Amino acid sequence: MNQETLTNCPICTSTHFSTHLVCKDYLISQSDFTIQVCNQCGFRFTNPRPDSASIGAYYQSADYVSHNDSGGGLINKVYRLVRQYTLQQKLKLINSLQTKPGKVLDVGCGTGLFLETCQKGGWSINGVEPDANARTVATSRLKIQIKADIDQVVDGEFDLLTMWHVLEHVPDLTETLKKLRSRVRVGGTLLIAVPNSDSLDAHHFQNYWAAYDVPRHLSHFTPPTLKKLVNEGGFIFKEMHPMYFDAFYISMLSTKYRDGRTNWLESIYQGLRSNIRARRTGNYSSLIYVFQKL
Rank of each mutant, 00 (worst) to 15 (best):
S54K: 05
I268N: 01
D259G: 01
L161Q: 08
F205Q: 04
K90N: 12
V290I: 15
F235A: 01
R273V: 07
V104N: 05
I250C: 11
F291M: 08
G42R: 04
P215A: 09
Q88E: 13
C38H: 03
W123A: 07
N196E: 08
D259Q: 14
S267I: 08
P10Y: 00
L265E: 10
I94E: 03
M1H: 12
D259M: 11
Q84W: 07
A278H: 09
C9K: 01
F158T: 03
Q3K: 15
H16E: 15
L142G: 03
L167V: 03
N76V: 03
L74Q: 12
V22Y: 01
G271S: 09
G234K: 04
C23Y: 04
R185T: 14
T5C: 08
D213P: 05
N95R: 13
R49S: 10
N275Y: 08
D201P: 03
N76G: 04
A278D: 08
P130T: 09
L191M: 14
F17L: 08
P10A: 08
W264T: 07
D131E: 14
M1W: 04
H241A: 05
Y58H: 10
K92I: 00
D159Q: 10
T99G: 13
D151L: 13
W164R: 11
K100A: 15
Y59N: 08
F205Y: 15
T222P: 04
A193V: 12
V104T: 11
N68W: 04
Q36E: 14
L180A: 11
H20Y: 15
T262W: 01
V166S: 06
T7M: 09
G271T: 06
D63E: 14
G260N: 07
